[in-house]
Write a protein that binds this DNA or RNA. Sequence first.
RNA 1: GCUUCUUUAGCUCAGUUGGUUAGAGCGCCGGACUGUUAAUCCGUAGGUCCUAGGUUCGAGCCCUAGAAGAAGCGCCA
Length: 477
Amino acid sequence: MGKRTEIVDVLKTPQIGATITVKGWVRAFRSNRFVALNDGSTFNTVQVVIDPDKIDEATIKRIGFHACIAATGELVESKGAGQAVELMADTVEILGDTDGSAYPLQAKKQTMEFLREKAHFRMRTNTFSAVFRIRHGVAFAINKYFNDKGYYYMHTPIITGSDAEGAGEMFRITTFEPNNAPTTEDGSIDYSQDFFGKATNITVSGQLQAEIGALSLGKVYTFGPTFRAEKSNTSRHLAEFWMIEPEIAFADIYDDMDLAEDFSKYIINYILENYPDDLAFLDKRIQDVEKNMKKELRRPMSLIDTLKFVIDNDFARITYTEAIDILKRSKPYKKGKFEFPVDWGIDLQAEHERWLVEKHFKKPVIVRDYPKDIKAFYMRMNDDEKTVAAMDVLFPGIGEVIGGSQREERLEKLRKRMQEMNVHEDELQWYLDLRRFGGAPHAGFGLGFERIILFITGMANIRDVIPFPRTPGNAEF
RNA sequence: GCUUCUUUAGCUCAGUUGGUUAGAGCGCCGGACUGUUAAUCCGUAGGUCCUAGGUUCGAGCCCUAGAAGAAGCGCCA
């Protein structure tokens, strides 16, 4: 291949007077003369100037929307107003033609729903290329944050023999033919003859295994795909999503909350510092969309201002009990505006969380010490014997982004909770062993990767921040 | 799983009480254009009105069933 200069470098450190080659996809071809070329290395495009005396007419005709071309020529200061430099093309090579009459995308605004159906082309658009560059940035920042703080990246299994992870419906994994599975005497499927010799699922969480890591390596985190077979039809749920789960020994619920807040702010700050062009475009895009909306439906702050506000202010921290008190004293409660009841012992509904975050505190809120009956078996019992050391971090517009807890390290209390909640001990002997032999107080949380990307990009639907979303009834691409 | 909404040209939509040949903007295609910034201007083509059944002299419009998509809820991250 001939040498090419990436457009990010052309724009960042322009070599005026040098002859260079750029390769990329045509974003616009104006006046039969100006090509806006993008190669994905940056949000921005470089302008390639086509001189009809140098480039033959047949080639010029093939420069269509999203065609792939290579252009070689001198980089000069631009005579036009919209850009600093431009490439005066001596030669243009068509690398990939595009038949405009058949290509589904257009050089204009298109709906997210339509582009979702064309997921193999949507990354070429301004919006999705910005989102997916930021997605990469968030993934990198996560690894950098934990690495710099001495955490070990731990790979927990995707295939699990346990169905007691306590986080929802699982997808069964098997090599049996659907209508030809061996059965036992009582007619049920005999998984002892299956590939793994037992019933297996794909994971809903790496937390329990991460606890093994924490009680050996001290500080670990997992970052990988997780799967939930719940038929959740919302803009915040996926059947396949990525989750970050740090787990730390010698930590309590307060250390856990400190980590969650510091970590969230670090990620957001990293994107603000490293992806300003992409963020600026997404910010402007939201403002364009909201122009036609009623004032009360618009965001209270612009996207970038929201991100800055979050890193500059402390998260609100309250207990579940305090949250109930605040809600009971709230206007919507007194006026009967809440659809669901507010009472100690009942889980907070989305409408309650949104009111607390968006109307009352107007910033991220960490709620802790939830009633034991609405939380998982592994969460540490508080001294009141009524609440557990659990915490949820709630973000404006999205709700729960992080859910975590201090884990129950006391063997007898853990076994009691497992019995009360019908979790079978025999499958989790290894988990109980962690308390029997060299146990320690420890805590951790799970953060939904796509949810933090939703917050940072300001996108409305979680299906638009993962390249190929898996949702009930949809596994295209 | 529940509630509500949507489905008409490639895209975004309009389509009056049920009435002849279903419209617009954008895009595409063809043409013009040597400084454009979603370029602009001129012209052409483009339709299984989501599917199946029904009511009616007559259905894009009414009825029944189904499909797909979206928003909200529940579950959660």
